[in-house]
Design a binder for these strands. Structure first.
Lengths: 154, 154
DNA sequence: TACTGATAGTCAGCATACTGAGCAATATCA
DNA sequence: TGATATTGCTCAGTATGCTGACTATCAGTA
């Protein structure tokens, strides 16, 4: 009964572990070197050009101290840029580079394939249900982590 | 449609993030300083006294290079011991200390409370279904990570 | 305008996870 | 038995994630 392997927390860890491995394998096979975290950050920068780091972190529920390193690596790979914000001298305005856009476009099939592979043990219906339950549990626990999801300010 | 926040991989990451935060909060409130990973390792050592590191890693699906540091910290806290194996001079036989047993016993309510909190957005039925689907997806993907779950050799 | 509080970003330190390499010991088999 | 392969463990290096602290800047208010 007190088998850690049967606790929700351990299942969460294990599923995430597999999800990351599948993502890296699919993306690696396609010839790219991008982590799940870097992918989400880059895609969100593309969708919201010029946003600052704190806003980006809120949109994908990363800690603000984690996002610094993630952006460092995107910049170092030439996929994103950190510019000075025109409105706030504390903030950095994030932009995706042309190469970042190109990478994002070409990496998409591998990313989508990874999502299918990590759910391959489930029927389509079960996959949908798993995602629904995860979304529901996550919404209820959003404020319990230091890095909650935040909506974009209009 | 290509919103990272709606992909299974991102939901996995987010649920795990909340699960860890809840675990640390509940266990911390109870006055203990133990991570989810350390807890699972300690509980498994208690259930299988004398096991070696590779076997322990397999029983809870940790990477063999990760388990080294985890055990280091359990030993440093006085909760576990690394002894020489009598059967194989390469291997270390892991034992739980009396203080480790005491800690495990007293920490259990907090650990169980954490499992409830991380599912608090779901009905009991939904929580069961989420766990069933996670178990199923994990079973199908077990071999896809570097650290798959391994059965105990009899 | 001067003070106060909040905010954006960074940094140091710690704990998972992984890749890949290496060492020592064991197992296997020609 | 002797060569080879495998296994248990560790280490260096990299990438998340977190805690807590700090600086620079901004916003609100007396």
């Amino acid at each position: 009964m007190s088998d850690p392997n049967d606790m929700p927390g351990h299942l969460a860890r294990r599923f995430q572990q597999i999800a990351v491995a599948v993502f890296l394998a699919e993306v690696g096979d396609a010839g790219f070197d991008l982590t799940p975290v870097q992918y989400a950050a880059l895609a969100t920068i593309k969708a919201n050009p010029g946003l600052d780091q704190v806003t980006l972190a809120g949109l994908i529920a990363y800690d603000r101290t984690t996002i610094t390193g993630v952006i460092d690596r995107l910049v170092q790979k030439g996929l994103a840029e950190r510019r000075a914000s025109s409105r706030d001298r504390r903030a950095r305005a994030l932009e995706i580079t042309d190469e970042g856009k190109r990478t994002l476009r070409r990496i998409t099939p591998a990313v989508e394939s990874a999502q299918r592979v990590m759910l391959r043990g489930l029927s389509a219906k079960e996959g949908e249900e798993l995602m629904r339950l995860l979304r529901k549990a996550i919404a209820a626990g959003n404020e319990l982590s230091r890095a909650p999801l935040r909506e974009m300010q209009a």
